[in-house]
């Protein structure tokens, strides 16, 4: 029995349940069209402007940071799996099993430290920081 058949079936179920609920609701619910109903909600005020607002640049910064870090953690997973076996194996010592990972994490941390210091993960600046620094996104 392949594991992934079951998982696929769960995906099917996961799709069918919402769809089922939607169809039940479709049969039950009333429909009373009215223009003002469809206006977007802005705390009762008349909506102004579109939604393509410019938001904080920090969203991009953390997103970029994440892409890199997340993938690097994926590279650590294989290491974590074989770590104990490598320790047990004759030909690799502790240094050989642990060293590369420490180096890897160290480089990651240098990157993090740099991002930290240059304000890539700082959401808001204190007034003093605003004074001293140029606009560094």
């Amino acid at each position: 029995m392949n594991d992934w058949i079951a998982i696929g079936m769960l995906a099917l179920v996961g799709l069918l349940i919402p769809l089922g609920m939607m169809s039940v609701s479709y049969l039950l619910r009333p429909s009373v069209p009215e223009t003002s109903k469809r206006a977007t909600y802005e705390s009762g005020e008349v909506p102004t402007g579109g939604t393509r607002i410019r938001f904080n640049i920090q969203y991009y910064m953390v997103a970029l940071l994440f892409v890199v870090f997340d993938i690097e953690t994926v590279l650590l997973f294989p290491w974590a799996v074989v770590y104990q076996d490598a320790l047990a194996a004759e030909e690799y010592g502790l240094l050989h099993a642990l060293g590369p990972m420490l180096l890897f994490v160290a480089i990651l941390l240098v990157g993090l430290a740099w991002a930290w210091r240059t304000g890539a993960v700082q959401w808001a600046r204190t007034p003093r920081q605003l004074e001293s620094g140029a606009d560094r996104p």
Binding site: I7, G14, L15, P18, S31, V32, R38, T40
Partner: peptide, 30 residues
């Protein structure tokens, strides 16, 4: 809740708007 009227805001991006609940619910189940 099931028998309430479904009010879809104007300008909604329809396919995405409809898919989002399915994705949220389905993925957690998966």
């Amino acid at each position: 809740l099931l028998s309430k009227e479904l009010i879809i805001p104007e300008n909604a991006d329809r396919p995405a708007y409809d898919l989002a609940p399915i994705v949220v619910a389905g993925s957690a189940l998966l």
